[in-house]
Each structure stands twice: as C-alpha cells, then as structure tokens.
Simulated assay, not measured.
Amino acid sequence: MKFTFYIFIFFSVSIFSQESIEARLISKVDLNVDTLISVDNFGTSYYIKDDVIYKKTNIETINYNNLQLGTIESANAFNPLKINLFYKDFNTIIILDNRFAEIFKIDFNTLSEYKSVSHVSTGHDNTIWIFNQDLQKLELFDYKSRITRAQTAPVQSAVLDIKSNYNSCWLLTENYLYTYNYFGSLLKKITNTGYTALAESNENVILKKENALLFIKKDSEKIIPIKTSNLLINQFFVTNETLYIYNHKVLQKYQLKTN
C-alpha cells in the first residue's frame, strides 16, 4: 500500500515538473531600434533610437529628444498620458504627455532632500517608484508635491530590474524578487535563483533566466516555464496575454495560453 502511495506521489511530481505554458507564434517583423519600450493593444509602439524616444501609430510617428541630458537609461509608457524618461547620468526624470510634450521635470540633485536614483517605474496618480541608492530603499515619490509618500525597508543586494502598475511594484535584486503594494508594504518575497530581468502584466510576472522565460501567476508563487523556441532574448514584455520578444533584429509576437 505504501509502495503504491509513493508511486502516485512520484508520478504527480513528475507531471508537475513538466507543466509549462505554450507560447504560439503570431507574427515576426524586422526591427532596428536601440530599445523597444512597449506595444499597446492598438499596435502603438514606443521605442528609443539614438537617445530619441518615438511613438509610432498607424497614422503618425512623433518623437522627443533632450540630448543635453545624455543617454536615456529607461523609459516607461505604462501610463501613455504620463510617460517617464530616466536620465541616470543627470539624476533626472522627464514626464511627457501623450503628444510628447514635456509636463514635468524632476531633477533630484536640486531637491532639498537629495536622492541618488538608480531605477524608476510608474506609480499611481502623480507618483513614480524610484530606488534610492543611498538608502537602499524603494520609494513612492510624488513629483508634484516633491515628497515621498511611501518607502520600503532597505534591501541587502544589488537591484537588477523594477516594474510596476498602479497598485504594486516588483523589485528584482540579486537575492530576491520583492512585491510591494503602494503603501510600501512587502507582499511577497521569492528567492532569486538566476533571474536577471522581469516583466509584468495584469499582476502576472514573467522572469528571464539565462535564455528562458518563466511565468508566475497573480496570487501564486509557482514558477512555470514558458515554451518558446531557442530564441535570443534581449528584451521582452507582455501586453495582456501577448508576449513580445526582441533580439535587436527581429520582433516576435506570441500568444500565451495561461489558462
């Protein structure tokens, strides 16, 4: 009887270990940009070429440049009405509207409470998530009132990536993947076993490990591999259940079957 029970357990574990998510190729297109930021549900793409950010629709292409601030370290178009550009060399963030007009400039060097920022992502209302290198804390910063609304406890390892939506923020460090709410409270902590980058969509998380992608469903800690062909993954992001993988030459679009 015990032998039969152990066989059942072994069989169940084997099935579990083989669980994966299918990614069905929809299309691929040649693309030559420095950084692909995102593609929305309407096909509007945001990308960076030679430190100029572009927004391309079916009708037009618009751009914004601020070359005196140097290299764009990161850009976030999660909220297309408040796009943020981070110029790390100048410790400065520019906020753009949907027509790429500059609506806010945050120079952290000139604040009464100086902040040395290494990573930036979008928050709710007039806030942005920033990682304060001096304090080793993630902060929710209100760029209108110039105050910190929330902050986390210090983290003990180097930050690799950051992603957010209006409700939560995910901080990937060399040791852990942290999930925080907009009060700065820790919701979840998962050990990093080799992840180097992440993406988020509808509270679901996709992690990159070497040249593979893994999926963590909202309210779960189970890590499930995504079945893709042997691709070179330089950049990736997810819009709803559509996975985009870019290798600096070709953009591939996949449908994820997560249910």
Rank of each mutant, 00 (worst) to 15 (best):
N41T: 11
S220D: 14
F104R: 12
G123Q: 04
K115V: 08
E174A: 10
L138P: 05
S145V: 15
L198F: 08
T179Y: 09
N41D: 13
E60F: 11
T61I: 12
S17M: 11
K217G: 04
T92M: 03
Y47G: 06
T71G: 00
N32K: 11
I147G: 00
V52Y: 06
H124Y: 06
Y195M: 06
N202C: 05
L172N: 09
K115A: 07
I7F: 11
F183H: 04
L67F: 13
L177C: 08
A150S: 08
S116G: 01
A75N: 08
N126L: 15
K222E: 04
L207D: 05
P80S: 14
E203I: 05
D125E: 11
K137V: 05
I162E: 01
K49P: 00
L140T: 01
N192A: 08
P225K: 13
Q151N: 13
A199C: 09
N192P: 00
R146L: 15
L187N: 14
R99P: 00
D40G: 06
N63D: 05
S116A: 05
E73Q: 11
W129R: 04
T242P: 02
E241L: 10
Q68E: 13
L187K: 15
I7G: 10
P225E: 15
I206T: 10
R24P: 02
N132M: 02
L207E: 04
L177M: 13
G194S: 04
W129A: 01
N91G: 04
L25G: 06
L186R: 15
Y143T: 14
V155M: 10
T35N: 07
Q255K: 15
T110V: 11
D107H: 07
I147H: 06
W170H: 05
D134G: 04
R99A: 06
S116M: 07
L251A: 01
N202M: 14
V238Y: 03
V39N: 03
K218E: 12
I94K: 11
T44I: 11
Y246I: 10
Y246V: 11
D134I: 07
T110I: 13
L231F: 14
D97V: 06
S12F: 11
T110R: 07
K208T: 01
Y6Q: 14
N202W: 06
F78L: 15
I106M: 12
E22W: 14
N181L: 02
D219Q: 07
P80D: 12
S14W: 01
I162G: 02
L243M: 05
Y64A: 07
E60V: 08
T71R: 07
G43E: 14
K115N: 06
S38E: 08
Y246W: 12
S121K: 00
L171E: 03
E139Y: 10
N65S: 15
D107V: 09
I130N: 12
V33T: 15
Q255F: 13
E203A: 13
L85H: 00
E22Q: 13
F42Q: 08
Y166R: 03
T152H: 01
S118H: 03
D89E: 12
D97S: 06
D50E: 15
N230R: 04
N202K: 12
Y182H: 03
E22P: 02
